[in-house]
Nucleic acid binder design. Structure first.
Lengths: 201, 201
DNA sequence: TGTTAAAGTGAAACAGGTTTCAGCACTCGC
DNA sequence: GCGAGTGCTGAAACCTGTTTCACTTTAACA
């Protein structure tokens, strides 16, 4: 058995790490202009100074690339949120506040959001592992926001999953111009009430 | 008020109506085999016996085509549901029952579901009117299932929107193999509890 | 230091969605 | 029946994601 398969993460050299970052940066730059469709693989390759073949070695498809981008952004968000946790008292309000903060970040870069969210929901089975990582990150952010004491109950995890569903889908409707910002806010607040239901106070 | 749905669209002749139906039928056939990617425009054109240019005259993009297909299916489902309304007592249970029925239908044709749902969530602004029609149909189905007496309250409409969000997103996670059937069931049941919250009993 | 396997490059080719266009075929008003 | 306009056809071309491949560079290491 050679080490041909992927032991989860191949150790990247410094140059490789730099290349990867250049690629992600170029993608974000292109995305923030024209959204999903503006992230064209040839353009990404050129902008980041790697060959097309190399780009595909790092990210096996455009969707992989964009999902990795989202992973990146979420990580950043997670750290920011750790530093400035939500101020509300009630868990449901804390989650709503956190999601609205993320939403406002997206409003600042709607095209970037478009590229990432569309990729995320369009991803097929071949991207499942990566999408799952994003999902776990999102879950972690929400659970953090809830600020609960011990391990979340199954009911709480269900509520969190539903919140995540609503979050993604509401973003889609907003990005495609079918829902207003206010509408999304209401939807988030509405779904966050589910958390109260799981609180055996 | 007649039952004409689109006043904007030119009235189709009989031959044109037949062509349109042939196209949709061919698409469904291809989709039920290989899902989203198997619905290839050249293949649809050939199977339905129209020229590629004609196909694009009827449906300006692949996503338009698949969204129209979903519209079709939803209409069918709506009629079926009218004939056999849910048997449960509680509104929330009735909605959950209805969605699970739809979900089972999708399980019978997962590839078909894949094509339709992926198209729906991937649709960009140019497809907004059509996606909106699908959304309204879905809303109507859920409201019907609730079996409420008068006009829905704003709170109820919010709950329905969130249910719709969860419905779409849960389907996506199931289709991409990241959630089990049981998981989707739980998510649906969880979100349907929101309906109880809006019941000023 | 020389060897070698993996990684990167560049260019071409392929695949499928979309556009274009010249010509034929229908339909409708005269 | 006749002309005009609109719809349909067929084929080619275009665009962008993806693959392929022969070749070069890099880096690890014997």
């Amino acid at each position: 058995m050679t080490a041909v398969s992927k032991p989860t993460t191949a150790p990247l050299t410094e140059r490789q790490e730099a290349r990867r970052r250049r690629i992600l940066h170029a993608s974000a730059q292109l995305a923030s202009r024209g959204g999903f469709e503006a992230v064209q693989m040839r353009a990404v390759a050129e902008t980041s100074g790697v060959a097309l073949g190399t780009l595909y070695r790092y990210f096996p498809s455009k969707v992989h690339l964009l999902v990795a981008m989202m992973q990146d952004q979420l990580q950043r968000l997670h750290e920011t949120l750790r530093k400035r946790p939500p101020t509300e008292e009630e868990p449901s309000a804390r989650v709503a506040q956190t999601l609205m903060r993320a939403f406002r970040a997206m409003q600042r870069e709607p095209q970037l959001a478009d590229a990432m969210v569309r990729a995320l929901t369009f991803a097929d089975r071949s991207v499942s592992p990566e999408v799952d990582t994003v999902s776990r990150l999102t879950t972690a952010i929400i659970l953090d926001a809830m600020g609960l004491a011990g391990t979340p109950t199954p009911a709480q995890l269900s509520a969190v999953r539903v919140i995540e569903h609503t979050w993604h889908s509401a973003l889609i409707t907003w990005l495609s111009g079918r829902a207003s910002i206010a509408q999304v806010k209401i939807d988030i607040e509405t779904v966050c009430r589910l958390i109260d239901l799981t609180n055996p106070a």
